[in-house]
């Protein structure tokens, strides 16, 4: 008798959950861990300031989010995915294949990546080429023979005689992280490209070029410190000769502990990233399924909240959290595209 009632209640619970699955009353968001802190701020304001429920946000990483997002249309699939890079052609095609045809792309702003060390030591002035020569797995042969050799550098002085003779020791995120991808693409490849013959190589064999210019050395100087940026900051504080790679918002929150190195003469500051002077910065996006607008309540309102001037504008609350806003012209263009719900075409 008891067993029967337990079974009955379980069946009831399961069936009620299935009805939830067929009409969801909150927005489901997945995607990048870099966009996550900005998205939660917007979602919270949206949830508390309107009659809609607060959106649910999962931090799955840009790639993982795109995969969930492109899986199909319907309330079982997320409505929005955040991304710290633009959607790839392949992902776009996967979306199309699964019936996710109309996607609205929203570029929200930029994020800088800091190459920072403890305040107890001097601030360094580096170029992307220095970072490449210090951290790439293979580097161009210094004898000028247009071949690659395994990276022999052990101190910063080896890399560039103007730099101090301290050991190269860089704490950074593991390969699963979007920050690592962006760092490899912007800093390592940026330095790689500064050799004209390597740049020419890109046209000949794109794959080999990418393998050379994106691969970080695995012989010790680059230490994978996990996804937790707070941990990296604390380790830098304890080890003044080490450098760390993390997002600008963490630098901004820990200004009394760490300082960002100057890259090509520019420190990672709000202004230098916004003006595009600081070279290691990346765009932040989110993508919306047009088919879900009007089906899942609140998506339009969420879009309005995100693209309001008080949110992503120069003085908006996202800038307080370390996001670098778009310039006025771009902001207006993106805002108009959102208002008209213009789908992305690739």
């Amino acid at each position: 008798m008891k067993l029967a009632s337990v079974l009955a209640s379980l069946v009831l619970i399961t069936s009620s959950s299935l009805t939830v699955a067929s009409n969801r009353d909150y927005i489901e968001i997945v995607g990048s861990s870099t966009v996550y802190p900005f998205a939660i701020a917007v979602a919270e304001r949206f949830g508390k300031g309107t009659k809609f429920k607060t959106p649910k946000i999962e931090s799955t990483g840009s790639g993982g989010g795109m995969k969930l997002f492109c899986n199909g249309v319907g309330v079982a699939h997320p409505d929005v995915t955040n991304s710290s890079r633009r959607i790839k052609q392949k992902e776009f095609e996967m979306c199309q294949k699964n019936g996710v045809t109309d996607i609205i792309e929203v570029l929200i702003g930029y994020d800088g990546i800091a190459f920072a060390n403890s305040k107890k030591t001097d601030q360094l002035s580096l170029t992307r080429r220095d970072i490449y020569l210090a951290l790439a797995k293979d580097i161009p042969n210094p004898d000028g023979s247009e071949t690659f050799i395994a990276n022999p550098h052990t101190t910063w002085k080896d890399v560039n005689s103007a730099l101090p003779a301290t050991k190269i020791e860089v704490l950074g995120p593991p390969p699963t992280s979007g920050t690592r991808d962006a760092f490899a693409e912007l800093a390592i490849e940026g330095g790689c490209k500064s050799f004209p013959w390597v740049k020419a190589f890109k046209k000949v064999d794109k794959k080999a070029y990418k393998a050379r210019c994106h691969t970080i050395r695995e012989d010790g100087p680059y230490i994978e410190a996990g996804e937790n940026d707070n941990l990296i900051v604390n380790k830098l504080d304890a080890n003044p000769s080490a450098f760390g790679v993390f997002g600008f918002s963490f630098l901004d929150q820990n200004t009394e502990k760490v300082q960002g190195a100057l890259i090509e003469g520019f420190a990672p500051t709000f202004e230098s990233i916004a003006q595009g002077d600081y070279s290691i910065s990346r765009p932040l996006y989110f993508y919306v399924k047009k088919a879900h607008i009007g089906v899942v309540p609140g998506i339009k309102g969420y879009l309005r909240e995100f693209t309001a001037d008080g949110t992503w504008g120069d003085e908006g609350y996202l800038t307080d959290r370390g996001m670098i806003p778009l310039n006025t012209v771009k902001r207006k263009a993106v805002g108009d595209a959102v208002k008209n719900q213009t789908p992305l075409s690739m």
Binding site: Y26, I40, A43, G47, T54
Partner: peptide, 9 residues
């Protein structure tokens, strides 16, 4: 299963 998420409500 998606329980690592930002949930306010």
């Amino acid at each position: 299963i998606g329980m690592v998420a930002f949930i306010v409500d």
